[in-house]
Design a protein around this nucleic acid. Structure first.
Length: 329
DNA sequence: ATAGGGTTAG
């Protein structure tokens, strides 16, 4: 039975009326439109709606900005994001924690670390979310530098040599965060451990993982184990990577399995459980890349029959390799 | 009545 049926109707009406007086109805309506679009497959529509709202003279409120900024970040529109930033400053909503933090993440998502840092530095107060967002932005930056030589050149050309080592910035941010007396939470640690993984800092990564468990009493989640599997895997310590998966209290997910099997492929390890290969295909049978990876593993251990079977299975499902893409324009 | 942070990867 719903709560509406338990209470006299006029009570509900009174509550509704009160909120309708507090918030102008058209602002709420616009917020709803922008929120829906921001989460949709076409976040640009949220940005368009926001500017339409501006043109119609409806004032944005503290809810509007997080929605539209999230959308700007999702479709990588720094230009529009900056315009919204200006409006945020003008309207005084910069002091709102939600608004400030989404602004920071927006710049982080768009890869404009300098502006993210500017917002971060100018914040009157930084909470856990602000620190985690800034750490994440630094990690993303380092991942970009690390993953693609061409992109590295491109980035270095534009931003100058001074921007090297953002992954280290992420680490130093974490240290500053602790010094500032903030208690990092499980998401802060995900960012930190990712930074260690990208930088190849195995010793530090291990220490921070222990610190998370023993000092902060945070129970490691699947993604933390995933970071460790990735950390060891990238560093070529495939055995240690394997041990992490074996010691986990839960079943690994497809991300972890893919990370581990790729490490095996690169660094080589013939004692791979067939189980992992099969498990990956069981968890995520719709991704072509998983079949490619599984076939590679079969080839490594000279299981040619298995490999042929996988090829057939892949074709039968009509799976193709998804072409790679980059969001850098 | 609506709101903010993280992870794969050839």
């Amino acid at each position: 039975m719903s709560s509406q049926m338990l209470y006299p109707i006029h009570l509900n009406l009174a509550r509704l009326t009160k909120s309708w007086i507090r918030i102008p109805p058209e602002v709420f309506a616009w917020n709803t439109v922008i929120r829906k679009h921001a989460k949709s497959a076409y976040p640009i529509e949220a940005v368009n709606a926001f500017f339409r709202m501006q043109r119609m003279g409806v004032p944005a409120d503290n809810y509007t900005y997080p929605f539209v900024l999230k959308a700007c970040g999702r479709c990588l529109r720094v230009g529009e994001g900056r315009q919204v930033h200006c409006l945020v400053v003008k309207s005084g909503f910069l002091l709102d924690h939600y608004v400030g933090n989404t602004l920071l993440s927006m710049y982080g998502d768009c890869g404009v670390i300098r502006l993210a840092r500017m917002v971060f530095d100018e914040m009157p107060e930084r909470d856990v979310v602000s620190w985690s967002s800034m750490i994440a932005a630094c990690v993303t930056w380092y991942a970009l530098l690390a993953c693609n030589e061409k992109l590295k050149t491109w980035t270095v050309m534009i931003c100058g040599l001074s921007n090297h080592g953002r992954g280290e910035d992420a680490l130093s941010l974490f240290i500053q965060m602790e010094k500032a007396g903030l208690k990092p939470d499980s998401i802060s640690f995900t960012g930190l451990l990712c930074a260690c993984s990208h930088l190849g800092l195995v010793k530090e990564g291990k220490e921070y993982f222990d610190r998370m468990v023993n000092v902060y009493n945070i129970e490691p989640k699947l993604e933390h184990y995933g970071c460790m599997v990735d950390l060891f895997g990238r560093a070529g310590m495939v055995k240690e990577s394997y041990d992490i998966i074996k010691s986990m209290p839960k079943e690994p997910n497809s991300i972890i399995l893919r990370s581990f099997l790729s490490a095996c492929k690169i660094h080589g390890w013939d004692h791979v459980d067939d189980h992992f290969k099969e498990l990956l295909l069981e968890i995520e049978p719709s991704l072509g890349a998983n079949y490619v990876l599984a076939a590679n593993m079969s080839a490594m251990s000279h299981q040619w029959d298995d490999m042929a079977k996988l090829r057939v299975a892949m074709k039968g499902k009509g799976l193709k390799k998804v072409p790679g893409c980059s969001w850098v324009k």
